[in-house]
Design a protein around this nucleic acid. Structure first.
Length: 287
DNA sequence: ATTAATGTTCAGAA
DNA sequence: TTTCTGAACATTAA
C-alpha cells in the first residue's frame, strides 16, 4: 500500500521520464471496472492539460504532484493499490489513466513516451487543480507536515493535542502526513514505544525516539524502494518489486521472534480496525 | 459458495 | 470538539 516511501520511490522513478516533457494527451482509460474518480471532468482535464509542459514532479505525503507550466497541477492519490508507471503495467484491465508525452531522445536513447496510472482496487483519485485549489486541498487544515520534514519541535507541538493511542495518531494525516499502517508499526517498534500509549502522555525522551525512528525507518525504506507485500501489488515505476519487506521488524510478523530482544514473539492487535504489530517486551505498556 | 480481511480516505454519526 | 464507524473497491484466503 503506497505510503510515503513507496510514493517517493514512484516519484523518483517517473521523474527522469516525465519532467520537462510536454503532454500530448491526458485521458482516462476505458477500464473494465468503475472509472477512476477524477476532478474536474475527464474532458476538462484533457483540454486544460493538452500541450502543457510538465515542469516538476514532486511528492507531498502520499500524493504525487505533476506541476504544469500553466500553474495547474495533477495531484494523484494512489490510496491502496495505485501505481505510477513508465513501463508495461502488470495487466491492462486495471489501467485507469494515461498521459501520452512528447517523444524525446536523450543520449541516443528514446525515453518512455507514456505515463500510466494503474490501480487494481480502483480507490485512487486524480485531480487537476489550479494553484488556489491546490493550496486549499493540501493546506494545513487538510494535511499535517510531511513526516520527513517533522522536527522534534513539530512532534512536541502536535502529539500532545490528542489523547488517542500513538499508533492511531500516527495514521492521522492531519497530524502528520505520509505514515500509513505498515510504517506506523515499524516506527513504533524502533522507537520502543507501545502502540497504545496515549499521545498526550508521551514524554520528551519518547518523542525524541519517535522523531529519530521516523527518519530512520522512512529514509531506509526509500533506499530499499519501498515494501512489496505478499500480495505483490506495490511495484516501482518500472514494475519491479521493492525490497524493504525483507527488513520489516514487526509488520506481518506475528509469532516470529522480535528482532531486537529475540526473546518475545511479535504480537498482532487491532486498533481502529487495523492491524498493529509490536513486541510486548521491547515496547512495554509502562516504564 | 459465501464471507472475512486487506488499508486509505472521507462523510457522517456518536 | 473530538473520536469513531462504515463505505468505496477488487482480490485472495479461509
Amino acid at each position: 500500500m503506497p505510503e510515503l516511501p513507496e510514493v517517493e520511490t514512484m516519484v523518483r522513478g517517473i521523474r527522469p521520464h516525465v519532467e520537462g516533457r510536454r503532454i500530448i494527451k491526458a485521458a482516462r482509460c476505458r477500464c473494465a471496472y468503475r472509472p477512476i474518480d477524477v476532478t474536474p471532468s475527464a474532458r476538462s482535464i484533457g483540454q486544460r492539460s493538452k500541450g502543457q509542459l510538465i515542469t516538476r514532479v514532486k511528492r507531498l505525503a502520499k500524493r504525487i504532484i505533476l506541476e504544469l507550466e500553466s500553474g495547474d497541477a495533477f495531484v494523484i492519490e494512489p490510496r491502496m493499490t495505485g501505481l505510477m508507471l513508465v513501463s508495461d503495467p502488470p495487466d491492462r484491465t486495471h489501467l485507469r489513466f494515461e498521459w501520452q508525452l512528447e517523444e524525446r531522445v536523450e543520449k541516443g536513447e528514446r525515453n518512455t513516451e507514456t505515463l500510466l496510472f494503474w490501480d487494481r482496487r480502483g480507490l485512487g483519485t486524480l485531480r487537476l487543480y489550479s494553484q488556489q485549489e491546490m493550496a486549499e486541498a493540501l493546506g494545513p487544515s487538510k494535511l499535517g507536515p510531511d513526516a520527513l520534514s517533522m522536527t522534534l519541535d513539530d512532534w512536541r507541538g502536535r502529539l500532545p493535542g490528542t489523547q488517542r493511542a500513538v499508533k492511531v495518531a500516527l495514521l492521522d494525516q492531519k497530524l502528520v502526513a505520509g505514515i500509513g499502517n505498515l510504517y506506523a508499526s515499524e516506527i513504533l517498534h524502533l522507537a520502543r514505544i507501545h502502540p497504545g500509549h496515549p499521545s498526550d502522555r508521551l514524554k520528551v525522551p519518547h518523542l525524541k525516539r519517535l522523531h529519530a525512528a521516523t527518519q530512520q525507518v522512512l529514509q531506509t525504506a526509500i533506499r530499499y524502494e519501498g515494501s512489496t507485500l505478499a500480495d505483490g501489488t506495490y511495484r516501482n515505476a518500472l514494475n519491479q518489486n521493492g525490497s524493504y519487506q525483507n527488513e520489516h521488524r514487526v509488520y506481518a510478523r506475528a509469532d516470529e521472534p522480535c528482532p531486537t530482544c529475540g526473546k518475545s514473539t511479535i504480537v498482532r492487535i487491532v486498533q481502529a480496525q487495523r492491524s498493529t504489530f509490536y513486541c510486548q517486551r521491547c515496547q512495554p505498556e509502562k516504564w
